[in-house]
Design a protein around this nucleic acid. Structure first.
Length: 441
RNA sequence: GUGGCUAUAGCUCAGUUGGUUAGAGCGCCAGAUUGUGGAUCUGGAGGUCGCGGGUUCAAGCCCCGUUAGCCACCCCA
């Protein structure tokens, strides 16, 4: 008896209470809706994979963060680090069944053995969507539209999707003779906003081994500011002679034009040549999404175009483009911003237990309402009405139904609107329509 | 993975240079003429001071370890 086990979760792993879980489920629901509305189909893959499937796909950094162990059958296994690598394996394995182009979405938990911080956990959910089997810029543009619609549907107005294209960066690096040091240069470049121009130049010359002139040239390109068209025009001039670079610019130009034609507000799409992040496998368009009111939490939806998704698993070359919504990070931001609804009940109507011997009537009406699509909970004990109402209020119910012998004698119910603090007497025959109308408000 | 900060009631915190039964606000529970909730009043429950060692006559307070959270780096959702 004295040896109680301390109830605790692992570092970076969390429990979700009803309030948080309601918000999570709502986000998942929205992600599904938006993805499906663009024609992405759902798939799922196992949480655990053979370690060699996952190793070496995102650079050595991600290998170190893998939760890896030997299972009881001596298999070397690991928990998935993201949803993209399992998707690559999935594609290689099922290509003949799915055909191309193929659009899928995948909501799933992933695991990374990182040092946790706010918005960074060891277990978190990603909501991925990808289009594979086409190099068309239409898919790149659609990816942007999906990200945009997703955030709007969640309820955000103030956010920007920063867009860049690796071809632009590669074009420049090729032009100034840094093609071998791409990843080092990009890593340094990516810190521009954080550490400033001089520090970036220092890192490029000291660590990466560029000349100061080369570093300055990279910086000149990356610090372009102004409207998207300004940036595009100046990029075009800077990249003259570089075929890849210009192709990248042309793709970005089309992306800006088309997304605007499709009705995306211009200020939500921002060309930013300094964003270079993303896993090594990105080769084209890159996306990162930031909340205007909470930039510190980092990108909440990132992705990009890649040339060859499943090159390690099949000889078939599969180009694609996609992005991933970091659901738990987004939720951490929303909590911080006070955007998480405090409701902890999924039902909207509470039937108070006024007289225990009337349980039959309460259950009967409960079922009638449920069949009409209204979630109903019946309070289990005949406690004081005040306490029952307090419970209803705290849990976030919208309506409370109260009926005792007076009401049953008259064939009516008291319908109490808990937010408006108003009570209406409604004949039982009109109850369903009345409640539906009240909830629709 | 490296470095730093923090850890006292469900939550936010106070706790004097180590000194007797550890406090507050909010929340929770129960009452304030036994058919109705967010206000007020009254009362109550709830803490082996994250956990384990050590120093001391004496530790919430000092030292070591450990676990967790947060911050920076790294990386990223």
């Amino acid at each position: 008896m004295s040896d109680l086990i301390t109830p605790q979760t692992l570092k970076g792993f969390r429990d979700y209470l009803p309030t948080a879980m309601m918000a999570r489920e709502r986000l998942m629901e929205i992600a599904r809706q938006v993805y499906r509305s663009y024609g992405f189909s759902p798939i799922d893959t196992p949480a655990l994979e053979y370690a060699n499937i996952l190793l070496g796909k995102g650079g050595e950094e991600s290998d170190k963060q893998l939760f890896r162990f030997i299972d009881s059958g001596e298999r070397d296994v690991a928990l998935r680090f993201d949803l993209t690598v399992p998707f690559a394996r999935f594609t290689a394995e099922h290509l003949s069944e799915i055909g191309i182009p193929f659009k899928r979405y995948h909501l799933g938990t992933v695991w990374r053995g990182e040092k946790p911080q706010k918005g960074r956990y060891r277990e978190f959910m990603q909501c991925d969507f990808d289009t594979i089997g086409t190099t068309s810029n239409a898919a790149d543009i659609e990816t942007l539209l999906v990200i945009h619609d997703l955030l709007v549907k969640i309820g955000f107005e103030r956010f920007t999707v920063r867009v860049n294209n690796r071809m632009v960066l590669n074009g420049l690096l090729e032009k100034i003779g840094l093609i071998g040091q791409t990843s080092g240069v990009l890593r340094a470049l990516d810190k521009l906003a954080k550490i400033g121009r001089d520090a970036v130049i220092a890192e490029m010359t000291d660590k990466v081994g560029t000349t100061p002139e080369q570093a300055a040239q990279v910086l000149d390109l990356a610090s372009l500011t102004g409207s998207n068209t300004d940036i595009l025009n100046r990029l075009e001039a800077l990249l003259e002679g570089s075929e890849v670079g210009l192709q990248g610019v042309a793709r970005l130009r089309e992306l800006c034009a088309v997304s605007q034609a499709a009705g995306i507000p211009e200020e939500r799409v921002q060309l930013d040549v300094s964003i270079a992040r993303g896993l090594d496998y990105y080769t084209g368009t890159i996306y990162e999404t930031f909340l205007t009111d909470m930039p510190g939490i980092g990108s909440i939806c990132s992705g990009g175009r890649y040339d060859n998704l499943a090159g390690l698993f099949t000889k078939e070359k599969l180009p694609g483009v996609g992005a991933s919504l970091g659901l738990d990070r987004l939720l951490a931001a929303m909590e911080e911003l006070g955007l998480v609804d405090q409701t902890s009940t999924p039902a909207q109507v509470l039937i108070a237990c006024f007289e225990a011997e009337r349980l039959g009537d309460y259950c009967r009406i409960g079922r009638v309402l449920r069949q009409a699509g209204v979630g109903v909970e019946i309070f289990p004990d005949a406690k004081k009405v005040g306490q029952q109402l307090k419970y209803a209020d705290r849990k976030g119910f919208r309506l409370a139904l109260i009926a005792g012998s007076n009401e049953f004698a008259k064939g009516v119910w008291q319908v109490k609107d808990l937010k408006a603090m108003q009570q209406t007497e409604v004949a039982e025959a009109d109850l369903v329509t009345h409640i539906q109308a009240a909830l629709a408000k």
